[in-house]
Write a protein that binds this DNA or RNA. Structure first.
Lengths: 255, 255
DNA sequence: GTTCCAACTTATCCGGAATCAAGGCTGTCG
DNA sequence: CGACAGCCTTGATTCCGGATAAGTTGGAAC
């Protein structure tokens, strides 16, 4: 978990307590650069982004670390710099359901920050991760100061709502097989432009059991579906790498 | 369908075409009053609300009328004044899934308006309904002018996101029975303060088959669950009215 | 190499919910 | 009053996917 060799250029690290700490001026430019990577901050000027810095805290999480539990109070949101985070809830009888697998550049926890309620989900690091926590306070201040930032937030929330509705759609009226195919296609489109046809290779971001849960499947069922797809010559599986001989054919095989 | 006796005090009515039309000054106060009912406009002053009026169009929909289909372009959002609207999607093989049953005071279509994509869902009137359509243009203008309105929008989107996540949770890890019980409890809390215990009566807002779909159940399965609950002495059913002898006991019977 | 452990696969069994198919109620409209 | 239409219920059957329980693989540690 985070070997000493980890490059970690920031003054703030592993501050597991709650007090937001200010950052040395020399770091400002670097921080702005990091923040600007997130879609939420894209298009804002450096001086606008600089306003957030007093509310930014770096968070390091080793694989398996839990950032927050369901029921914890929320006083800001997170931005992922490195690593992966999963958002899950626990059923009354102990089973867990992954609702999102998040990667660098993505943010989470904004919505709940605005409704001022405790977290409904748990956030856990899937691998060693580095993130920023941006305090509610600076967000609210900046919202009052800069309408463009409000627009960004609204756009982000709307997009997420949109995706979530698409999820509900696929959970309710697509088969397990179609959900898997849909996931593979989205995964392929994520990095770079979508290939129109031909052979592509997809690397799963995390364990199959986690992805299975994300797709509302058991790991067993996911495994069976993958093997069905192999039998249909639609994919080849080598560990976490999925090779697709013909992505166009995979696309057509959707319900 | 809208008998002639329907009270309909507005100059604009039944304008099924697309051009937004302005409204006579004398109507302004009444319009503001109607708009102010919606949570989205609550706390805004009359003069602030008045800015929306040029973009407001009244829409009348008879039972069964479709307000928009999936794929239609979106150029504003709707506010329900009277009646009920259901939001659904259609599966590739013709089945429909209700994602929301909306009632007076509620708005829909904002999120998709901000992402600037066509509707993903279909909106259909469950009964004769009256609504306002508020154009994208005046919303954007007002957002630039009034940060408090942005906050309202953000609050509304966040709340909806929150509810949707709760839906995903219940679809994925609650049984059909628990979803029905949860629905009844929410329905009871909706009108007035929740009764702590004792006998309450709940009126279903629409047909059982529609509610079944909203809960991701077939109507047959929904019917069976209701009869299970009757057998367990948790409820009594008379048409669309559900009597609960002891709401506290119903609450406890949740997983 | 060997050991160990987690992740994955495979097989079998089981159950909740969907589907298919009648049949009953209720209201409404000739 | 009768008949039709919607809506709901009920029963029989099927099936998808979950539960459980062994195996198997592969990688990391020693």
């Amino acid at each position: 978990m985070f070997p000493q060799s980890a490059r970690c250029p920031l003054v703030l690290r592993g501050q597991s307590n709650d007090s937001a700490t200010s950052i040395l001026p020399v770091e400002t430019a670097r921080l702005c650069q990091l923040l600007a990577q997130a879609p939420l901050f894209a298009d804002l000027t450096d001086s606008e982004i600089a306003h957030f810095i007093p509310g930014v805290r770096e968070v390091l999480a080793a694989k398996g670390d839990i950032l927050f539990h369901r029921g914890d109070p929320c006083n800001g949101f997170h931005l992922i710099l490195e690593g992966q985070i999963k958002l899950t809830f626990l059923s009354p009888d102990g089973h867990e359901k992954v609702i999102e697998i998040l990667r660098p550049g993505q943010t989470f926890g904004e919505a709940i920050m605005f409704v001022d309620k405790p977290y409904m989900v748990m956030a856990q690091a899937l691998g060693d991760s580095r993130l920023f926590h941006i305090s509610q306070q600076v967000v609210f201040e900046q919202m009052d100061r800069e309408p463009r930032f409000c627009r960004k937030i609204i756009a982000g929330l709307s997009r997420r709502l949109h995706q979530l509705i698409a999820d509900v759609e696929s959970y309710s009226l697509r088969s397990g097989r179609d959900r898997v195919i849909g996931y593979l296609l989205r995964e392929e489109e994520r990095d770079g432009e979508p290939a129109p046809a031909g052979r592509v290779s997809i690397r799963l971001p995390t364990s199959k059991s986690t992805i299975a849960s994300r797709l509302n499947l058991t790991q067993e069922h996911f495994s069976r579906i993958l093997h069905d797809l192999i039998a249909a010559d639609l994919i080849e599986v080598q560990g976490r790498t999925i090779n697709v001989p013909d992505i166009a054919r995979l696309r057509e095989s959707l319900g």
